[in-house]
Write a protein that binds this DNA or RNA. Sequence first.
DNA 1: ATGTCAGTCAGCGACTGA
Length: 242
Amino acid sequence: MKIVTYNLNGITARLGALLELLEETAPDVVCLQELKTTDENFPAAALEKAGYGAIWHGQKSWNGVAILARGCEPVETRRSLHGAPADLQSRYIEAAVGGVIVGCLYTPNGNPRPGPKFSYKLAWLERFRGRAQSLLMAGVPAVLAGDYNIIPTDLDVYVPERWREDALFHASVRAAYAQLLDDGWTDALRNRHPDERIYTFWKYLRNAYARDAGLRIDHLLISPPLRPRLQDAGVDLAPGAL
DNA sequence: ATGTCAGTCAGCGACTGA
C-alpha cells in the first residue's frame, strides 16, 4: 500500500499537479493539506474521474484537509480533533482505508513565536497526541500523515542555528514530536533512511529549492502493527519528476 | 531581515498567512 502526503497550498491552483501525481505514481491513499477552499468547491468530480474516492474538510481561504483512496471510498472516522469545540480550523480528518486507519493532519505553523499562534500550536499538538494515543490503545494499523510543521532534529534542517527560535524548530515542539515517538509511533522516513538529509519543504524565497536549503516538516508516523509492513519511504521532489 | 506564493475583495492591487 502506497500512502502519500501532500501539502498542495491551494487545491484550486494545484489541481493539475495533483492529477499528474495520481496518474504517474498511482498511490493507494493520498493525504492532502491546505486545500484553501470551501467544502462546496472541492473538486470531487475531477478526482472521481481520476479513479479516487475522497472525504474532505474544507475551509474558506485557509487550511483544509482531505483523504483520497484509489478505487474506493474512505470510511470517515473523524473530521476534527475532539476537546476544543470552539476550534473551527480544518486541520484533521481521519478514515479507514483498506484495513488501515489514516489520519491526515495539518498542524498550525505557530509563527510568530511567542504569541497566541504558538500557544494554539502547542495546545493543538496536545489534542493530536490524545487522538494518537487512542489509536495506539486500540492496537490498530494506523498512519498519521501530514504537514506537522515540526523539524524533528538538526539533521532535518539546512542551517539549524538559524531556526532555533522558530515555531517549527523550538524545543517545545520538538519535544512534542519526540513524545509521539516515545508513545510508540515510528517515523517512516527516518526508519528507512536514518542518516540521510532529506527535505520535504523549501521556502519560495531566495532560490531555496535550487540550493536545497530545505526542511523536513512533513511526516508519516505508523503504529506498531504497521511497522512490519513498512517497505520504504521517500520524497517525490516534484510532480512529473518520477 | 530577506522575499514569494495563493488567497481575499468596497475588487484589478493592496493586504495576510505561511
